[in-house]
Design a protein around this nucleic acid. Structure first.
Length: 420
RNA sequence: CGGGGCGUAGCGCAGCCUGGUAGCGCGCUUCGUUCGGGACGAAGAGGUCGGAGGUUCGAAUCCUCUCGCCCCGACCA
């Protein structure tokens, strides 16, 4: 792998005013670069992580039977007037198009998907159906903050489902919940991420958020005995408490453990709010005309990436889980002036690549400390060091980034635990 | 949107109070010595001091306005 192809340049210094851990680490590692508050460039290394997260999400959505599409971020005012949300969503980015036309940059896509769905949904035979997109979304936040966690421009996967009956929506919603839990598991946040009950809106009692527990979080949740959680916003509602705490007795809510968290996903039952607004209908078996019930399911890959950086890291830098790491293995060639080291590096690279591993070779002519420190900072799960001593012994020194455990193995033999 | 802090070289900062034409660290270039955890020496390159206006013989420095970044709060399908 050509190092220069990846804009790979780390730095020891980051502005002292930047206190957000995820931003500090990702900037230092050369993975993202801030253009303005809430808008970041993803450098090659960072984009590889983002893309992997998005592909995991795609994989799970596809398994649900949803098809991927792509809708415009640029949207006319008229569709927002239909639902009355042009003036209601205060983070809506508004701009003027040619001819002084009012336009919006999409913060969410119910107003686009619903009329679009009307072109394909006519009969109960067309239901259920679900589609999703992975796209750049815009929200004109009064205060963008916390690195990748709250941007004005960010990546979002939004899925919309359409059903003939509430029961069918409920069943799909459950499957979607499981898919979301698999997503967090795969990106490495599974143990820290709780399904959380939040306020529901007009058509359901609750919506569900997925909250990753961390001190740097902005949300507050209360853990339930069964492993779920309740968002603080509804903990004060008597009905909700009695509802969610089994065998509730007066005062039980005070015993719940309180924790800070980052919202990494949110799923909603929309009911017929949008299908009614856009007059999306289907003809049922008995010939009656009905509005499909809808659900929407959101998760932000860029925020997930920021959360992983925030949560899975140590003093030395980032620690990417195997499935979203920009590369699986980093080979540190300690002596690029030594033919033996270069040959061994190329050989190990070939062996690993042939087995499907993605490999980054540090072939800079610089000190060992530089290379080790950068490799730790970038956070590839496995490091393989090749130096004169190892070459003489026919060995490679392996290091597991997460555990810090090191071991020397014969060239070609891979450490326990290194697998795709 | 309210409050506070800060904009000086690619990055991180000092200088500003007490005006006199810009400096340090990292990074970068060249040479040499090094070479298994952020090496050392020598020589270099690189800046309209966020922007506009004002005061002054003279402004990075003082005044006014403006833009931006970060933090706290409010807000957050």
């Amino acid at each position: 792998m050509q190092r220069t192809a990846y804009f790979l340049k780390t730095t020891k210094d980051v502005a002292k005013t930047e206190v957000s851990r995820n931003a500090q680490l990702l900037i230092r590692a050369g993975m993202v670069n801030q253009l303005m508050a809430g808008a970041y460039s993803y450098l090659p290394l960072g984009l590889r992580v983002l893309t992997k997260i998005e592909n995991i999400i795609r994989d799970e959505m596809n398994r649900l039977g949803a098809g991927e599409l792509l809708m415009p971020a640029l949207q006319p005012r008229e569709i927002w007037d239909v639902t009355g949300r042009w003036d209601k969503i205060d983070v809506l980015f508004k701009l003027k198009g040619a001819g002084d036309r009012d336009l919006a940059l999409g913060p969410t896509h119910e107003e686009v998907i619903t009329p679009l769905a009307a072109t394909v949904i006519n009969s109960y035979r067309d239901l259920p159906t679900a589609v999703y997109q992975v796209q750049t979304k815009f929200r004109n936040e009064a205060r963008a903050k916390s690195g990748l966690l709250r941007g004005r421009e960010f990546r979002m996967k939004d899925m919309y489902s359409f059903h003939a009956t509430q029961e069918d929506l409920d069943a799909f919603y459950e499957k979607a919940t499981e898919a979301y839990q698999r997503i967090y598991q795969r990106v490495g946040l599974g143990d820290l991420t709780l399904r959380t009950f939040a306020s529901g809106g007009a058509f359901s009692k609750y919506s569900h958020e997925f909250q990753t527990l961390t001190e740097s979080g902005e949300d507050i949740v209360y853990k339930l005995p069964n492993g779920d959680a309740i968002n603080e916003e509804i903990i004060t509602e008597r009905e909700a408490i009695a509802d969610l705490i089994p065998n509730y007795k007066e005062g039980d809510e005070a015993k719940l453990q309180k924790a800070k968290s980052i919202e990494v996903g949110n799923i909603f039952k929309l009911g017929t709010r949008f299908s009614e607004a856009f007059n999306l209908t289907y003809t049922d078996k008995d010939g009656s005309v009905k509005h499909p019930v809808m659900g929407c399911y959101g998760v932000g890959p860029s925020r997930v990436m920021g959360t992983v950086a925030e949560v899975l890291s140590d003093e030395a830098g980032l620690i990417w889980p195997m499935e979203i790491a920009p590369f699986h293995v980093g080979i540190v060639n300690l002596r690029v002036s030594d033919d033996g080291c270069n040959i061994a590096t190329a050989k190990l690279n070939d062996i690993l690549t042939a087995q499907g591993f993605e490999v980054l070779v540090d072939d800079r002519d610089t000190g060992a400390g530089d290379k080790f420190a950068d490799m730790d900072l970038i956070g590839l799960p496995w490091q393989a060091t090749i130096g004169p001593k190892g070459v003489a012994a026919g060995e490679v020194e392996w290091k597991n980034r997460k555990t810090g455990q090191k071991q020397s193995l014969p060239m070609g033999k891979l450490p326990e635990g290194l697998s795709l």
